[in-house]
């Protein structure tokens, strides 16, 4: 089984002035291709830090993070950026769309950064994707003219437009009402199934776990356990203290 992500004994410390705050302490985690993995844990448990490391926007203080076969600690800033552009898609909690661009332009942006496709190809791919996430009719609109769910759909389209191997979603439903959140999760799951894209998302919302292929529970910067979605749901989201 191929691991798209492999986190091995990783620690991450943040320097806050004189004080060193450990955010992750000896975390190891392997993610297989095609997984729909949830990372759960209360605030301050290290979810976002782990996501940052996996998403190549940060490098570990100790241990190794391997993404798509590349050890991120050994890559330059440029290479990390390139890795993000070509291999990873991001979905953010507050959507993070470029407000001055239209929906279409927002989604097209990563393709432009890749500079691989012609204008026509880009357009076709973007429109197809917008169709797929159900907001094609809004392609000319500005993000500010859309609802929260629609915006997150735009964000999902943007994350998938480069056909990344890995999509990272940081609390994707936190800013959405429950119905919309469910729709978004359905969409993501659907895409995960159809495109075989690996999804990793952080969440502390127990409802989300139901969609996951597995749930990794974090507490105090350490992995508590890795359980199936059912187990996680049954446990009510509380780490059980059982070893992985």
């Amino acid at each position: 089984m191929n691991h798209i992500v492999s986190v091995s004994n990783v620690s991450k410390n943040y320097n806050l002035g004189q004080v060193v705050v450990p955010a992750l302490r000896g975390v190891s985690l392997d993610v297989a291709e095609g997984e729909f993995l949830a990372i759960a844990g209360p605030s301050g448990s290290g979810k976002t830090t782990l996501l940052n490391l996996v998403g190549c926007v940060d490098t570990p203080s100790a241990g190794t993070v391997t993404v798509d076969g590349k050890q991120t600690g050994q890559l330059s800033e440029r290479d990390l950026t390139r890795l993000r552009l070509h291999t990873i898609g991001f979905i953010f909690q507050s959507f993070n769309l470029v407000s001055v661009l239209s929906v279409l332009q927002n989604v097209e942006l990563p393709l432009l950064l890749q500079r691989a496709l012609s204008a026509r190809e880009r357009r076709e791919r973007v429109l197809a994707l917008l169709d797929r996430v159900g907001i094609r009719e809004y392609s000319k609109h500005r993000p500010s003219e859309l609802s929260g769910g629609q915006r997150q759909r735009v964000a999902i389209a943007r994350a998938l437009v480069t056909r990344p191997k890995l999509v990272l979603a940081d609390e994707p439903t936190a800013n959405l009402d429950s119905v919309t959140g469910t729709n978004i999760l359905n969409l993501m799951k659907e895409l995960n199934q159809s495109e075989k894209t690996t999804f990793i998302f952080s969440t502390h919302d127990a409802r989300v776990w139901a969609y996951a292929s597995a749930v990794v529970r974090l507490a105090d910067g350490q992995v508590q356990d890795r359980v199936s979605a059912e187990e996680a749901v049954r446990a009510g989201g509380l780490p059980t203290g059982r070893p992985v």
Binding site: G55, V57, E77, R78, T81, R82, R84, L85, H86, G89, F90, F92, N96, V98, S99, L109, P110, L113, Q114, R158, A159, T162
Partner: peptide, 16 residues
């Protein structure tokens, strides 16, 4: 800052 961070995250190089 958040917008710039986003652009960086989704793969925009610094020179962009």
């Amino acid at each position: 800052m958040p917008e710039i961070g986003t652009l960086r995250a989704i793969g925009a190089q610094r020179r962009f």
